[in-house]
Amino acid sequence: MSQERVSLSKARQQWVGWQRMLRVQRPGDLFFRGITLLFVLIVLGLVAGTAWILISNSLPTIRRFGFSFLTNKAFDPVHDVYGVLPAIFGTLMTSAFALIFAVPLGLGASIFLVDFCPRPLRLILAFLIDLLAAIPSVIYGLWGFLVLAPWLHNAGEPWLQQHLGFLPLFTGQPEGVGYLGAGIVLTMMILPLIISVSREVMLVTPIAQREALLALGATRWEVIRHAVLPFARVGILGGVILALGRALGETMAVTMIIGNQANEPSLSLFTPGYTLASVIANQFGEATPGLFLSAIIEAGLILFIITLITNILARWLIASLQRQAQGSRGGRP
């Protein structure tokens, strides 16, 4: 008897608990909530579907070549042999080039924008940077192909060769198109992104921390060095990784200037090459069902996995910064 009562009240508690969890009292609300959840599930399904389609459609080459797909140099439809080593090399090479130049430049520029720039100019520049971050890549590609490549061919690369030709980076035939051009265009593309992310995280440094340093007689640089940068470090790193993800996956701007040749990986920046994205953009037109098609999709799969990892890393870093920032009041200098 009393046993029964206990279990009954337990059931009621459970029911109330469920109700509270769903926070729903009326069937209409349940319906509405169900609809929104349905859309969420569709989105999740689309993401999962993307991964599944990439994997299932690259099975033929995965089975056929296995790991050697990553280390094979030839992408050769005639003999039906496929590998993406040159493309992976080109992707890493151009992205590394872009980071090496865009990170110091971008960080310097954002420090200037946050701390040294006169106020009215600051607004204009910040808007301009945000605008430039939104300029489509085909515009950068157009400029790269029509202006940068001819200039590199006629003036830039010969000059580099003449003065710095002893470095392996600047050997070989100046062609205009190649890693160098692609690297420069990528640098210009990720620069606004890096500036705007690091500017944003530097702006939320709590004023109290800047003032702590100021009150000790610190110079403006010391304030940045000891208060702003330690606070913004993680966020800046997140932004840089985000930019890296952009550079790794950039298609149009790179395709238009990298030359699109499956050359031996070479340190020479003058070499025309490939990236994973430009392989896809260049080869899909001729693709025939079978290994060729599968090879293109596997190139996409590799790109997908690489950018997935960089993005997860970046998001995780940025999220951890936000947790750190919570509680301490942010402020704008």
Partner: peptide, 9 residues
């Protein structure tokens, strides 16, 4: 300062 403001990191 009114609010303690050590450098947290």
């Amino acid at each position: 300062f009114q609010q303690p403001n050590p450098l947290p990191t």
